[in-house]
Design a binder for these strands. Structure first.
Lengths: 208, 208
DNA sequence: CGTCGATGTATCGTTCCGATACATCGATCC
DNA sequence: GGATCGATGTATCGGAACGATACATCGACG
């Protein structure tokens, strides 16, 4: 999941790890942040795989068990996506399998980078997500109506609130799907009538 | 977090690991389930700490690198909470620090076992949770109004939906707190007027 | 009688998190 | 001038939880 998000952000511009973390929190809606204990290992993996490059060309002198103070020339590191990284990102961004929508976290990240995602893939992910959440909702409904009498009021409230949340998410997804369909239809119409380019919708208009 | 939930469930009756997992999923509202990769290590920890006991008295014969098929007499194991475990649970259930409400997952579990929690602790946890979520909401609002123009419509939708969810949670918590206060007042009144026992509210009425 | 789904125990490798240490730099305060 | 404080910044450690998987038993159903 992090792999996708990091490549997506670096795709826009090179960054420090610190900045990466802040952007990530912003994109995910502020609730879900990520910790350094995930970020730096992930960057290391991406670097090892050749998907990102650093400006500092590995000043990793061994110095084993040296002076305990260890004044270790801690320099700032700028991470840049490589050509292979961009390729990898476009490969990831065009996947629409269950892994893209079964996990809510990854789905959020996918949605945040929808502007790099083809229209048909967008639609498949949204519909997949809807089905997943609908199934959750049905399970929840069944469980609730089965055990309503045996639950104390706190557990009941918890489940009621959870069910309402899931319900709202389904409606939200339905709206997104609707808009997606309307846009694609309008785009087809325009394309046939006037030959407009099929620009992905929702792109922030460039402000010169 | 698991420690609390497991002890809470075993507090009601002894169970197999499998049953434990199902109950846990039910209590948490069906969305958040937990995997065996968490459950069995957690049970092992609790067993090592002396908080739960098993019926099978450890038939762990060494047999190192024996026959690869290894027909290993896999018996069912019933986990039972010990006296130390009950003590531990009551210790945990009376804590109202930030750890009880800063993490949403743990908060959910705490709420699910509110019927074992004293009224003042309940109130402190609910109010703490409300403050936490309110802070999240303010951060989200600020971030959204700051960056509204630069976001594409998908990210915007993501944040809008997130904000609405958080908003709903705040209102939900406010309702729970209100009820808590009303009940405690009513309870005081009843106690003074008629000497009713201070039974915790919301208990499922026993059906004989 | 076979096989299929539910019940059941358990581990492996991996991802991710929380806490923490260390370091630099600008602003603000006294 | 200098002290201190918060933001920026890199990094690791131990542990918690996950997803996938293997293995095993058993009742039901065709």
């Amino acid at each position: 999941m992090l792999e996708f998000a990091i490549l997506g952000l670096l795709h826009q511009s090179p960054m420090h790890g610190y900045e990466l973390r802040k952007q990530l929190a912003g994109v995910l809606g502020g609730l879900r942040s990520i910790s350094y204990g995930s970020l730096y290992p992930a960057l290391k993996r991406l670097h090892a795989a050749g998907y990102v490059s650093t400006d500092e060309p590995d000043p990793r002198a061994p110095l084993p068990a040296d002076a305990p103070p260890l004044t270790g020339r801690r320099g700032k590191v700028v991470y840049t996506i490589t050509a292979e990284g961009k390729e990898r990102f476009h490969e990831l961004v065009s996947q629409a399998g269950p892994e893209a929508y079964d996990d809510g976290g990854l789905f959020g990240v996918r949605l945040a980078f929808f502007r790099h995602t083809a229209a048909d893939v967008r639609l498949r992910i949204l519909e997949g997500r809807r089905r997943t959440v609908e199934r959750q909702r049905e399970g929840l409904r069944a469980s609730l109506s089965r055990t309503r009498e045996r639950l104390d009021r706190y557990t009941l409230e918890l489940q009621r609130h959870g069910l309402e949340s899931v319900d709202r998410e389904v409606r939200w997804l339905a709206e997104l799907i609707d808009r997606e369909l309307t846009d694609s239809e309008r785009r087809r119409g325009d394309g046939a009538d006037r030959g407009d380019p099929p620009a992905p919708p929702g792109e922030a208009p460039e402000r010169p």
